[in-house]
Design a protein around this nucleic acid. Structure first.
Lengths: 193, 193
DNA sequence: GATCTCATGTGACGATGTCAACCTAGTGGC
DNA sequence: GCCACTAGGTTGACATCGTCACATGAGATC
């Protein structure tokens, strides 16, 4: 026997997991509220007891992606330079392993309560800034931190859209990420031994 | 009296324009094939005579966005540095004026014939690279050109998602774009007088 | 043990993408 | 100048989907 609260929490969790799976497997158009519910073992109407609508459910999934990235960033070790590279590598990895999830994270906040997704991304970015602050001058933390994060996001987004398979750039996303980090972190102001 | 070919071409154009308008006005979820057709003055089924499906129509709209950007890039004048900044400013402007259109352009190629969208973006990026090649060493053109383009894309994408309104980065998209361009074009290798 | 309270199940409705069949007005051959 | 042809356009129909109002039943509260 399970308490009603436990049962509800389990359902909510199952809905989030099912939605994330379907998103990973078939992209946004494969995420059907009906399929999500079915995979979670509940009926069509059950999700509405936990989420306002489909977009809110997907926003919650995206928010959890930010949480995971935040944890991975916090778990980095080594020199500041290594940790910055590691944090950005975690972002890159999420983008490659879960492209649809990644796009949801970086896309426009949807659903009711868009603030939830925004604040989740904020916490992650603050986590990243904390590492950057050990690497560059105080006055440059936000400028270079923001440039690193949003720049790498753009590079990976371009990769996911196939912009490196065409031969136009004649380079790889990895090389661009490395170039960006090197220019900012190592070349521009080598604040580390 | 109009020839059949002219009429068909006009219908196709009206469909593209209507789709672009609806996309601009209400975002992707507001783009209904029925509404597009109605605004274009034709019936529900008419679009299928010109596009394989809804995604293909939106891909064609996105491709036209790349074409316009390509023209704007080609129209830049001044020093190489000014033209690079102008080209990137054109990208920024599209993102701000037509955020939904912008996201479609940079998003994953959808619909049948994804190659159409890819090749359109390629042409635009080659146009950009042509300018960059006047600014940096030959061996760095693709690396720095790609970094500039994808980096600025990411900065603007972050802005469109509200990541600069939260105070986390404590800076603006404009400053990040300027910082990136300055570091690469002016600071790193000032190949221009 | 009676009642209450939610989480969930179910029926229904409107909207939408898509297709098949039909229609119609330019088009080309005689 | 007439006629069959053809491609673009219209209409009806269908499956699917998000969403809501209502019913239901099992835990929670007294």
């Amino acid at each position: 026997m399970v308490s009603r609260a436990e049962s509800a929490a389990a359902t909510r969790r199952a809905l989030l997991d099912s939605a994330a799976e379907l998103l990973d497997e078939g992209g946004p158009e494969a995420v059907t509220l009906r399929d999500v519910a079915a995979r979670a073992g509940v009926s069509r109407g059950a999700p509405y007891g936990h989420f306002a609508d489909k977009e809110s459910l997907l926003a919650a999934v995206a928010a959890e992606g930010w949480e995971r990235l935040s944890n991975e960033i916090a778990a980095q070790s080594g020199t500041p330079s290594e940790r910055v590279r590691g944090a950005l590598a975690a972002l890159v990895t999420i983008g490659r392993r879960h492209p649809h999830h990644y796009r949801r994270m970086l896309g426009p906040p949807a659903g009711e309560e868009p603030g939830k997704l925004i604040s989740a991304s904020c916490r992650t970015q603050e986590e990243f800034l904390a590492i950057v602050s050990e690497l560059v001058d105080e006055c440059d933390v936000h400028r270079y931190g923001g440039l690193l994060f949003t720049g790498v996001s753009g590079i990976i987004a371009a990769e996911l859209s196939g912009h490196f398979e065409t031969g136009t750039w004649r380079t790889s996303a990895d090389e661009l990420v490395d170039t960006l980090v090197t220019i900012i972190a190592d070349g521009r102001l080598q604040a580390e031994g």
